[in-house]
């Protein structure tokens, strides 16, 4: 099976997991959900690292990679931190 087809298998199956997991999320946590998915979509940092870290990369590619790393890092760090800040506020009634 060609690599692209394997990737397609993974993609379609992941879509099903996404569908079932997300429907289980309680509506009161929809804002943290958006923030958390935002943080984990910072996973494009993996692609950015591969571009910026290639030893033979040309200058333009290196600069492109640098900015991609920077932007994705803002997402990763900012996204998780703000998610944690929000989730820390959701408390039950003090008994």
């Amino acid at each position: 099976m060609p690599d692209t087809l394997v990737a397609l298998y993974v993609f379609v199956l992941a879509c099903f997991i996404g569908y079932w997991v997300i429907w289980g999320v309680t509506p009161s946590l929809h804002t943290p959900l958006v923030a958390l998915t935002n943080a984990i979509s910072g996973i494009v940092i993996v692609g950015a690292l591969l571009v910026a870290g290639l030893e033979s990369a040309g200058t333009f590619a290196e600069i492109t990679g640098f900015f991609a790393v920077l932007l994705a890092s803002i997402n990763v760090f900012g996204g998780f931190l703000v998610t944690n800040r929000m989730l820390a506020m959701f408390k039950k009634k003090d008994k």
Partner: peptide, 29 residues
């Protein structure tokens, strides 16, 4: 979906999976 497409480009299953999860999350919302 942008992350998933990047995953296809890089043949990186992690990006594909995460992209699909986030893509579906937004779609369901």
């Amino acid at each position: 979906w942008a992350a998933a497409a990047t995953g296809f480009t890089l043949q990186n299953n992690l990006l594909i999976i995460v992209g699909a999860l986030v893509g579906f999350s937004g779609a369901i919302l």
